[in-house]
């Protein structure tokens, strides 16, 4: 890594880290995990700055990276909590979630298939338009519309009103 590339990542951190942290904290529900996601995202960019290639803007890249990092962490938390419960070390109501509404959304994200979970974050939480989501995913708006329909179907079948449109 050249010093120029490192300086470039530092610039991106200065202008965009606040939004990465904001989204991570909302998605994960606690500051400690959000701090670790923030660090992971930018260390990954330091290691491989060419990850930015192919994204329309730095923000679309960071939305994608942050969403993937948070969803992975949510799934790991879910698996860890399940293992602890199976071993009798953690009662089910002890999951570390704050507001009831956010908790429902996070639980739904843990259960959604990976691709749908990513789109659900952009559409239901970030409130992005179909076009903005298409730019992040690198697909057509029609595909985004289809994915949102699948999320809504899933939400209805699983009785998750917050994802049922």
């Amino acid at each position: 890594m050249t010093q120029d590339a490192q300086a470039r990542v530092a610039e991106i951190y200065r202008s965009h880290a606040a939004s990465v942290f904001r989204r991570a904290r909302w998605l994960l529900g606690n500051e400690a995990d959000a701090r670790e996601v923030l660090q992971d995202v930018f260390l990954s960019l330091l290691e491989r700055p060419n990850q930015l290639d192919g994204f329309a803007t730095i923000s679309t890249f960071l939305y994608s990276m942050t969403t993937h990092a948070c969803l992975n962490r949510l799934r790991n938390q879910k698996n860890r909590a399940r293992l602890l419960r199976e071993r009798g070390e953690m009662p089910s109501e002890q999951l570390p979630m704050a507001a009831e509404e956010r908790m429902r959304v996070r639980h739904a994200l843990e259960r959604l298939p990976a691709q749908l979970a990513e789109v659900a974050v952009y559409y239901f939480i970030d409130e992005l338009s179909h076009e903005e989501i298409a730019n992040i995913l690198g697909c057509s708006r029609r595909t985004v519309g289809n994915l949102i329909e699948r999320i809504a179907d899933w939400g209805r079948s699983q009785e998750v009103p917050c994802l049922s449109k």
Partner: peptide, 27 residues
């Protein structure tokens, strides 16, 4: 990013991504 705000949102409203792009000097 509150669900209450989402319900008030119109199609023309500015998304958080747009705000972030604006603050990041990307527009």
């Amino acid at each position: 990013m509150s669900l209450q705000m989402m319900r008030e949102r119109t199609d023309d409203c500015i998304s958080d991504l747009r705000f972030d792009q604006c603050l990041g000097g990307e527009l």
